[in-house]
Amino acid sequence: MADRTESSIVVAAAPAAVLDVIADFESYPEWTGAVKQVEILEALPDGRGKRVRFALDAGAIRDTYVLDYDWGVDDSGVGALSWTLEESTVLRALNGTYELSDAPGGATNVRYELSVDLRIPMLGMLRRKAERTIIDTALSELKKRVEG
Results as ranks from 00 to 15, higher is better:
R111Q: 13
A107C: 06
G124T: 10
L91N: 09
R132E: 09
T133D: 10
A130D: 13
G72A: 11
A130H: 08
R111T: 12
I134C: 01
I61G: 00
N109V: 06
I120T: 07
Y112V: 03
G96Q: 14
L85T: 12
D102E: 15
Y112E: 09
V52H: 04
Y98M: 03
D117N: 03
S101P: 07
S101D: 15
T64Q: 13
D136W: 02
G96P: 09
I120A: 06
T137A: 02
Y112H: 11
M122E: 09
S76W: 10
E87D: 14
T84Y: 04
A93D: 15
D75K: 13
M125K: 08
V73S: 05
G106N: 12
S101N: 15
W83E: 12
V73C: 06
Y65V: 04
V110I: 09
L85E: 14
G124Y: 10
L94H: 13
A93T: 11
V52I: 07
T97E: 14
D102R: 13
V90S: 06
N95G: 01
T108V: 03
V73R: 08
G72Y: 11
T89H: 10
I61M: 02
E86V: 04
D70I: 06
K50A: 00
K50G: 00
Y98K: 02
D117P: 00
G105Y: 07
I134T: 12
K50E: 14
V73A: 05
L67I: 11
E87M: 02
D75I: 05
F54K: 05
L85Q: 13
G106I: 11
A93M: 12
E87T: 07
A55M: 02
D74G: 12
A55H: 08
D74M: 11
W71A: 02
S115N: 13
F54P: 01
R62D: 00
P104I: 09
T84M: 03
E113D: 14
L114I: 07
Y69E: 15
V90A: 09
S88P: 03
V73N: 10
Y112D: 07
E131T: 02
M122S: 04
S115F: 03
T89K: 13
R132L: 00
S88A: 03
D117A: 09
I120R: 11
W71T: 06
L94V: 02
T97L: 01
G72S: 13
I61D: 09
T108N: 04
E131C: 01
V116Y: 04
R127S: 00
L91K: 08
A58D: 15
S115H: 12
V66S: 08
V90N: 05
L123V: 05
R132N: 01
S88T: 07
V116E: 06
N109T: 14
N95D: 15
A80S: 15
E86T: 06
D75Y: 04
T137H: 04
R92W: 09
A60M: 08
D63R: 05
Y69M: 12
D117I: 03
L81I: 11
E113Y: 05
A107L: 10
G105Q: 12
L100A: 04
A107P: 01
F54G: 00
P104Y: 14
W83L: 02
R53Q: 09
S88E: 14
R53K: 06
V90G: 00
Y112N: 07
L123H: 11
L81T: 11
A130M: 15
G77Q: 12
P121Y: 09
V110T: 08
S101W: 14
L94Q: 13
S115W: 06
R51Q: 02
A80M: 11
